[in-house]
Write a protein that binds this DNA or RNA. Structure first.
Lengths: 341, 341
DNA sequence: TTGTAGGCGTTATCAG
DNA sequence: CTGATAACGCCTACAA
C-alpha cells in the first residue's frame, strides 16, 4: 500500500495525495475529502523511510546516557522524551556505560543513524581533558549537541546545567553556619558536575577560613555498604560532624553509618544529599537534599534544541540554580537559614 | 557524500562499493582495500534512510512503556536496550503514561515509524477486557509484539513474564506458616501482573482456610504518605499482622506506618515488598522483597524477539519463577522457610 | 570479479 | 488547483 495505490483509487495524481498528506499547497475541498476518506478506509500510512530519504530527516533525536537505570538519568530521559514527543520528535535511546571508548563509539553510531540532534544526558560525557572531547566537537559540526548537566564550549553545543558549584557552596556555607566544624564531602565520580560540586564545597570551606585539616573529601564507588565501610575506616582517622554528598544514595549510606555507630542524626551528624530523589523519603529520618530542578533543566534543554534546529540563536549555556529541600537529616537552624535565604 | 562519490574516487562502480560495505559478494582484495581506505579518509557513512527504504527496515525496535522514570520500568528499559543494541538494533523509546487512549495512539504511532517490532514494557498495556486489546492484536499482524510482564494470547504476540501468581501465593503461604493470622495485601493497580499477584495472594489465603474476614486487600495510589494514611484508616477497622505489597514503595509506606504506630518490625508486623529494588536497602530494617528476575525476563524477551524476527518458532509465553530475598522486615522463621524450600 | 539499471515511496519543482 | 517527473541514496538482480 503506497501513495500510488491511493492516488489510483482517488483518481488523482500522487502529487495531490502528497499535498493533502502534508497540508501543503492548495487542494480543492472535494478531492481532499475523497482522498482522506480513502486513506482512512485503507489504513494507509506514508512510508517513513521514503519520507526520511527525501527530507533527510526522520524527526528523531538521539539520546546518549551512561545508564538509563540510574534513577537520576532515568528521570532525565523521561522528561526529555516527553518534551521531544510533544514537539513531534522521536527519541532513540542509547546507553553507553561509563567506558570512554564506548561513549565515543556510540556517539558516532548515533550520528550515522542520521539523527537530527544528539542529547548527552549526564555530566559523564564531558571529560576533564579537552583532547578527549574532540568527538563531541566533531559531532556538533554535523548536528546540534545538547548537554544536560555538563558543560563544553564549542560551536553547535548547547548546555543546560544546574549550577552545581553554587549549590554546593551555598549549602555547605549554611551547614557551617549551624556550628558544624568538620564537614565531609562524599562524591562518586569526578565528572563535570562532580568537579563543580567538589569545587563548591571547597570554596565554602575556604570562605569560612577552615584549615585544610578541618574539612575532608572522599571518593566512593559502589553500593551503600561500600559507603558505610569507607566511613568506618575514615572515622578512625578523621573527625567529621556533617556529611554532604553528590547523590542521595551516598547520603543513605552515610545515614546508615551514623546509625551503626550510634550517632544521632541530625544532632551529632548532619547529612545532606543531592538530587532530591525518591530515596529521600525512604529512610528515617528522611533525607534533606539539594534539588537540582531536573525537570526545568530538561525542559530548557529541549528549548535550546528546538531553537538550534530552527537555526535560531540560543545561549551556549544555561545554568539553573538549585534549591535545598529540608527534611530530617539536617537541624532546625539549617532549616531556618534556608527559609530566610 | 554518497556512494557515488566513493565509487568515483575509487574508480569502481557503486555496486562494488556497496558490496564491500555489506560484505556481500566477492570483491578482490585490492579493490576492497582501496575502497575501505577511501571510506575511512572521507569519513563516509551510508545513508540510513536510503538503506531503510530499500530494505524496508532500519533495525529499530519500538519500546512502549508507561513511565520510564518508574524504577522498575527504567531497569527493564535498560536491560532491553542493552540487549537489543548488542544485536545491532536501535531502540526508540515512547512513554505513554497510563491513559488508555494515549497508549493506543502511541502504539499506532510507533507502527507508522516502521519499527521492526514492538516491545510493551510493563503489564499496564494488557487490559482486562479483551475488546480493549484489539489494537495489540492488530499491531501483531504487522510486526512481532513482545510483552514484558503481561500476557495476551494472539498470533505474533510473545510474552515474557514473571510467574506473579505463583510468587505471591508461595510467599503468602510462607508468611502464614510463621504464625501470622491476618495478612494484608496492598496493590497499586490491577494491571495484568497486578491481577495475577492478587489472585496468588487470595489463593494462598484460601489454601490456608482463612475466612474472608481474616485477610484483607487494599488498593492504594499515590505517594508513601498516601499509603501511610490508608493504613492508618484501615487499622481502625481491621487487624493485620503482615503486609505484602505489589511493589517496594508500598512496602516502605507500610514500614513507615508501623514505625509511626510503634509496631516492631518484623515481630509485630511482618512486611514483604516486591521487585527487590534499590529502595529495599534504604530503610531500616531493610526490606525483604520478592525478586522477579527482571534481567532474565528481559533477556528472554529479546530472545523471543529475535526468533520472531527470523521467522523461527518461539513460545507464546515464558514464565520465570520469582525468588524471595530475605532481609530485615520478615522474621527468622520465614527466612528458614525460604531457605529450606 | 565487476558494472548497469531498476526499484524502494516520498517530496518538490515545474508546467499546465 | 492538478499532474508529470526528477531527485533522495542505497541494494541487488542480471549481464558481462
Amino acid at each position: 500500500m503506497n501513495i500510488y495505490d491511493i492516488s489510483r483509487q482517488a483518481g488523482v495524481s500522487i502529487a495531490t495525495v502528497s499535498r493533502v498528506l502534508n497540508g501543503s499547497g492548495k487542494v480543492s475541498e472535494a478531492t481532499r475529502e475523497k482522498i482522506l476518506s480513502i486513506i482512512k478506509e485503507t489504513g494507509y500510512t506514508p512510508n517513513a523511510f521514503a519520507r526520511g530519504l527525501g527530507l533527510n530527516t526522520m524527526n528523531t533525536i538521539g539520546i546518549l546516557c551512561a545508564d538509563s537505570s540510574d534513577p537520576y538519568l532515568a528521570l532525565a530521559i523521561y522528561h526529555v522524551e516527553q518534551e521531544l514527543r510533544s514537539h513531534g520528535y522521536d527519541s532513540i535511546l542509547c546507553c553507553t556505560g561509563y567506558d570512554y571508548q564506548t561513549k565515543v563509539k556510540y556517539l558516532e553510531l548515533l550520528l550515522s543513524k542520521r539523527v537530527d540532534a544528539v542529547i548527552l544526558a549526564g555530566s559523564t560525557f564531558v571529560e576533564a581533558s579537552p583532547a578527549q572531547n574532540r568527538h563531541i566537537l566533531d559531532a556538533a559540526k554535523e548536528v546540534p549537541v545538547i548537554i544536560i548537566n555538563g558543560y563544553l564550549e564549542g560551536r553547535g553545543i548547547y548546555c543546560s546545567v544546574c549550577d552545581d558549584f553554587d549549590a554546593l557552596r551555598a549549602a555547605t556555607k549554611r551547614v557551617l553556619d549551624c556550628d558544624r566544624k568538620n564537614p565531609l564531602y562524599l562524591y562518586r565520580a569526578l565528572s563535570y558536575s562532580g568537579r563543580e560540586k567538589l569545587r563548591g564545597f571547597e570554596a565554602a570551606c575556604l570562605d569560612y577560613g577552615l584549615s585544610r585539616e578541618a574539612y575532608h573529601t572522599g571518593g566512593v564507588n559502589g553500593s551503600i555498604y561500600d559507603t558505610i565501610n569507607f566511613l568506618e575506616e575514615l572515622q578512625k582517622q578523621k573527625h567529621f560532624d556533617m556529611i554532604l554528598t553528590s547523590d542521595d544514595e551516598l547520603a543513605i549510606g552515610a545515614l546508615k553509618f551514623a546509625r551503626a555507630r550510634g550517632l544521632s542524626v541530625p544532632e551529632e551528624m548532619s547529612i545532606l544529599g543531592f538530587n532530591n530523589s525518591r530515596f529521600c523519603v525512604c529512610c528515617d529520618p528522611e533525607l534533606s537534599s539539594i534539588d537540582c530542578q531536573l525537570s526545568f533543566i530538561c525542559a530548557n534543554a529541549i528549548t535550546l534544541l528546538l531553537k538550534a534546529l530552527k537555526g535560531e540563536p540560543a545561549p551556549a549555556k544555561t545554568a539553573l540554580s538549585a534549591q535545598i529541600v529540608v527534611r530530617g537529616t539536617t537541624d532546625t537552624a539549617f532549616a531556618r537559614a534556608c527559609h530566610t535565604a
